[in-house]
Amino acid sequence: MKKNVPLAIVLVLGVLFAVQYFVPSRLSQRLYDTTLEWDIIISIPALAIAVDSLVRHHVVRIRQRRKGWGYSWVYLGAAAVMTAIGFSGGISEGGLFMNLFTFALAPMQSTMFAILAFYMTSAAYRAFRARSPEATVLLLSAFVVMLGLIPVGAALWRGLPGLSEWMMQVPNMASKRGITFGIGLGSAATILKIILGLERSWLGGSE
């Protein structure tokens, strides 16, 4: 019963929305819009569960004195302060809440994003070591593509920008499309497995 009910709901709604995709009528559109609204309604209790889980996790870390437990105090303190400011002063533009968001949180997000540049350098170093025939091909292709995109490339050889463009548009595009076909079929197969109840891992398995 515990598994049959969710499976039945998935089967009925799965088939219904597969049909809905092909039916443009008003009734069909209303059904789709209503379901999207339900989605929002479901997400509210889910958010409460998620926040509860986060607070519990940090409380447990502090209680058990796990490695880095001091950071949990930072989290709980920051969350409490932001919540209190949000409820007491509102979240309007120019208020303390939005100022904290704009001048504290946003720069921290930007910092994380900026770190990507350094990670890219280390990843590129690893990728371009010619340790195998495939890696050598990758290295040479990257060299041609990068050189073709800058003025020095054209100065060295007039045909380099064209070769670079060809490599991006023909072999690169062909492999990307091959992967995309596989993704399309894989998506369809996954949906079908779930709708037909063959795939039950999301329910914890079939046992």
């Binding site: 992967i179 995309t180 998506s187 197969a189 497995k193």
Partner: peptide, 26 residues
């Protein structure tokens, strides 16, 4: 796991014949 391999992973790991059948269809 590139693209479709991600979708095939669950069937591959469980080795359940019915799930493997969908990979063949893919």
């Amino acid at each position: 796991l590139m693209g479709e391999e991600l979708y095939a992973a669950s069937a591959y790991l469980s080795q359940e014949p019915l799930l493997v059948g969908t990979i063949k269809a893919q």
